[in-house]
Every structure is written in C-alpha cells, then in structure tokens.
Design a protein around this nucleic acid. Sequence first.
DNA 1: GTACGGCTTAAACTTGACTTTAAGTCAAGA
DNA 2: TCTTGACTTAAAGTCAAGTTTAAGCCGTAC
Lengths: 132, 132
Amino acid sequence: MTIGQVAKEGGLRASAIRFYEKSGLLPKAVRSGGQRRYDRSILERLAVLERAKDCGFTLDEIRMLFHGFRGDVPLSKRWHDLAAKKIAELDALAARIAVMKELLERARKCQCLDAQECGRRILEGAKKREGR
Amino acid sequence: MTIGQVAKEGGLRASAIRFYEKSGLLPKAVRSGGQRRYDRSILERLAVLERAKDCGFTLDEIRMLFHGFRGDVPLSKRWHDLAAKKIAELDALAARIAVMKELLERARKCQCLDAQECGRRILEGAKKREGR
DNA sequence: GTACGGCTTAAACTTGACTTTAAGTCAAGA
DNA sequence: TCTTGACTTAAAGTCAAGTTTAAGCCGTAC
C-alpha cells in the first residue's frame, strides 16, 4: 500500500503518518523508488496508536508504550502501567473541572455592575479564606 | 505602584502584566519616566482576570468579558452568558474524560503480547461495532 | 561618577501535534 | 513527449499563553 492508501483506510492524513515515522512511533517504511510501501499490518499498528491517543496519551507516552520498556515486557504490562498513571492524571483533571464548574455556577449568579465591584468582592472573599 | 509591586501583590510575573496590557486585557498604564505606574484598583481588575482564568476561560473569552458586549451590559450579565457556554464546554470535556477512563480501564486488563495482536483485536472490535 | 536594580521595548522562544509550503522526483496515461 | 497526480524532503507555520532575551534607560546609593 502507498502512504495515501494507508491514510485513507486508517482515517488520518499522510502528513501525520510521515510525522509519526519521523517521531519514531511507526517503523521506517520500506521504500520503492523513493516512496513508502506498507503491508496491511501497518493498520494494526495504527489502530493501537489511535487507541492510545483516544485514551489521552501524549505521543511521548505512546513512544514509551512501544519502545520505553525492556524488549521482553509484554504489551499488556506496558498498557497496565501507563494506564494506571493516566487514570490518576485524569482524576486530577476531573477534579479541576469540578472546581471550575463550581466557580462558574457562582459566576452565573454574579450581581456586580462592573469589574471594580466584582474584583473587590473576590479580593474580600480571598482575604476571608486566608484568615481562617 | 510599579509593575514589580503589582506583580508581587497580584501573584504573577511582570511579563504577564505587560502581556495582558498588550493583549488589551488590562488598560494601558500611565507612564512616569517611561515606566508604568498603577493604583491599587489594578489589583481588583487582576482579581477578576485571575478568577476568569480559574473558571477555564481563554484570554480571548476574557476579552469578551471585558470588552465584547455593548458598554451598558453589566458585568453580571456578561458573566452569566459566558459561564453558561463554558459550563456546557466543561460538560463535554468531562464526558470525553469519562470515555478515556473507560478505555483505560479496559487497557489495564489487556492480555496482548504485542502490538500486532492488540491492533487486531481493536480492529475486530471496530468492525463489530460498525456492523451493528 | 559609577555601579546597581528595576524598568523599557521588540522579537524570538517554548510546548504538542501536527499541517503547510516549496521545490523536486517518479510512473503512468494520452 | 508531455502532463497529471501522488509522492518525496526539509523547513517553516499554527495555536495559547505567556517567558526569555538582548539591548538599553533611569534614578539612587555609595
């Protein structure tokens, strides 16, 4: 398959495939007359890559998944370790979102006429919480 | 107050204050001998700005909060409108996080020995869901 | 009178995940 | 032979929210 065919079947851009190869996330493709040629197993590799992206992993983390462990560590163990860390990250992120939502609910009830007043209230609130 | 004093009391860097001024998020400061001079009301303005950031607003959105409405729209109404949109965004984000967590929980239970196998399973799963 | 700290500016750099561009190669079809 | 169209590369561009850097000015303490 040419890079264009892989891109179409894989649902991404050819430029992304080139980028992944250069970044070490995909093996260097065989060239024929200068052009990359793939067999269908590249689609499996891409599926894992996409799945990892859908899980919220960065490309650096996905590089770990593929190359960051000793060669004899099975993929399942790599997934397990990285997933545990990422779940903790996502929990932290969810907590931050909860805080934002709480602040937004309060903002929705704001009665201030202008930024002066609003700022004064915010600063007072901060002072009060500091005193506790 | 000099920019350094404002930065210290406001808990941010002087470079950020200059950046906010250039971006139109803070009014142009009066200069004395070329240097910016502030009175304490800048701290109230900064408090609103920081609060908006804590709510998850981008600087573009915060610009809307300060300048994006007709001049006679009170700050409370601006907060209200922008907060409603942002809450919807955060809900969408939270849903995406839930999906990621679900995928990660499954990944944690992965038994595959290598990427080939894992990719094959993912592609099979996708095909199945497509058939439904 | 000079050293020092804090200030000024514009412009470049940072991160992440790519895309876009420019200039060029290659094989196939008319 | 000429023209497509898909491919090649390296390098630069994109977005956000600032930070960092370089070069220079200003007032004050010694």
